[in-house]
Design a protein around this nucleic acid. Sequence first.
DNA 1: CCTCGTCAGCTGGTCAGACCAGTACAGGGA
DNA 2: TCCCTGTACTGGTCTGACCAGCTGACGAGG
Lengths: 261, 261
Amino acid sequence: MRFEPVKKVNSYEIIVDQIEEGIREGRLHPGDRLPGERKLMETFSVSRPTVREAMRVLHATGVVSSRAGDPRGAEILPFTPQALERPLARMTHQHGTTRAELLQFRLLLEGQASLLAAAADPGEAKQRISACAAALDDLAHRAGAAGAGAATDLATEFGELLSGFHSSIRAASGNQLLQVTGQAVDEALTTVARQRLGEEEDVPALRARLRRSAEDAAILTQRIRDGDTGGARRTATENIYRFYKDRLSDLELKALSPLVG
Amino acid sequence: MRFEPVKKVNSYEIIVDQIEEGIREGRLHPGDRLPGERKLMETFSVSRPTVREAMRVLHATGVVSSRAGDPRGAEILPFTPQALERPLARMTHQHGTTRAELLQFRLLLEGQASLLAAAADPGEAKQRISACAAALDDLAHRAGAAGAGAATDLATEFGELLSGFHSSIRAASGNQLLQVTGQAVDEALTTVARQRLGEEEDVPALRARLRRSAEDAAILTQRIRDGDTGGARRTATENIYRFYKDRLSDLELKALSPLVG
DNA sequence: CCTCGTCAGCTGGTCAGACCAGTACAGGGA
DNA sequence: TCCCTGTACTGGTCTGACCAGCTGACGAGG
């Protein structure tokens, strides 16, 4: 006979589980309202602090939102990628995850996202990719012609457009997991690594890089529109690899190289 | 002049942020102990319920663990993949993520993990892959010869070994993000989809599938040991694809096919 | 000397009751 | 009709209390 270790279940966990189960099973939908705390303490037969601890957990994990004074009670929120970012960021910092691993994972995801996007049926999602690529191209021309604006502003706008381009590819892949995970990794990288990358860069170099990225994006877009799955994957990984090539250590590049080509 | 929207920060969030920041910046390490709640309410100048709400959040997200009566206070935990499983599972259920997407994501991750494992230097991690493949082979032979045991027991042991095999590959990839994400998706799939898959299966069919999986694992192991990155990726995806081929709808298979080969 | 049961002093878990600031909404004033 | 205000709630926070459980020290027994 086998025994099981005694696991004590705190009261708040029971409440959290019941509410999350209600959401999972479709009895509670985003936008629905939970009863007030004083009502909940009756239905669960616990005191208000216990109810509050449960609500705190649901609040902190992005399941519900509540405002003081709102007589409609806490609102059930739709899922957000942000819910994944917290643990991802924690893992990155605490678990000894290096920047190289983060980049490697990103390269891997973007490559597969491009492949799936190429395999997907043409439609609105693919048009958004083209629009994002066009916006990048537009910025590249504007920056080259006018030459106005500080380097940091240009770099920021550039980064946002590039991020949006990749986001549109992930969206076109048709896989929400890929989409959300990619977004979380993307933002984690922004937070973690941006300060050490591309800070000290003069304007001409930035413009050159911008032009190159715009061209790369155009090529990748074409591959995806052509439905060239293998080519899209290869182009996406090569683009990102080249993007980082001059600014990473040999050790970090070595981690990325197996995924290229 | 630009104004910012008023964001009300609850007291507990300040405490949570401070503790998480301490962990991020290396002032608090896993295994360290936090002061008791009554001590914390002094240092943060708040009441005990507020401290408790903060501790609840940290407890629920797997950052700390606490037991009643322990005078050493709450313990800071190391990061666990389980922290990602919660939001992943929630996303799967609530955000309309289908089983096809989950499988697609898994196929994608396992393929890339095998590629990276093949690219990695030989070492202890690769030996563990061989050991897991050998264990699968052993079970296949034992099941074929003795024929004892119920089908469910056999299926359970089979599933655990196969899961361990894939886990060892992810570990050998050298990327913790890949490892953790893969594990989370794996377990999410187990929870979500197992009841609808492989339930009604007779023993001979199960044995045949077991033998096939053991052979597949052996081939994949060889590719990884040979350092054949492309071959490892292809073999891994094909194996998983064939594993599911007879038990999924055409629509689901169509989602997987772009990743195969 | 070592082992083991006992017990005090703490811990976290839970409760009851209270006050305050903030919100929604109905009803009265313009 | 519109705006304003009051009211009756809400959640946020605090105080104070009790209980069950753990740890570690102490002392009885070997």
